[in-house]
Amino acid sequence: MYYVADVKEADCAKYNCKQCVLFCPEPNTLMYHDSKHVAWVNYSRCKGCAICVYVCSDLLKRNCIEMVMVTAGD
C-alpha cells in the first residue's frame, strides 16, 4: 500500500496549464494528454512526493490533484 498522485480529470480539464507536469521530478510519470488536455499519472512509477499537489493546490489554487492510497496491483 502506498501513496500516489491522482488527477481529478473533470477539474483539470477546465484549465490548460500542465504546470504540475513541468515540476514532477520523475521522468515519464506525470504526463499530459494532448487531446483531452488533462494531466494523467502513471501510477506504477509515481513515488508519491506530492510536489504536483503543492504546485496545483498551493501555488495555483486549482486543487485538481490529490494523493490517494493504492494497493499493489491496482
Binding site: 507536469v21 513541468l22 521530478p25 520523475e26 521522468p27 515519464n28 499530459y32 513515488k47 506530492a50
Partner: peptide, 28 residues
C-alpha cells in the same frame, strides 16, 4: 521545447533516486 515535457518519451528512465528529489528533477 522543454515546455513539451510530459508529451514525449523522455531520455531518462525510471531511476532509484529518492521521492521528491530535486536533483532528479534537474536531471530530468
Amino acid at each position: 521545447d522543454v515546455q513539451m515535457l510530459g508529451q514525449f518519451k523522455e531520455l531518462v528512465e525510471e531511476h532509484p533516486m529518492c521521492a521528491g528529489c530535486f536533483m532528479a528533477y534537474f536531471i530530468r
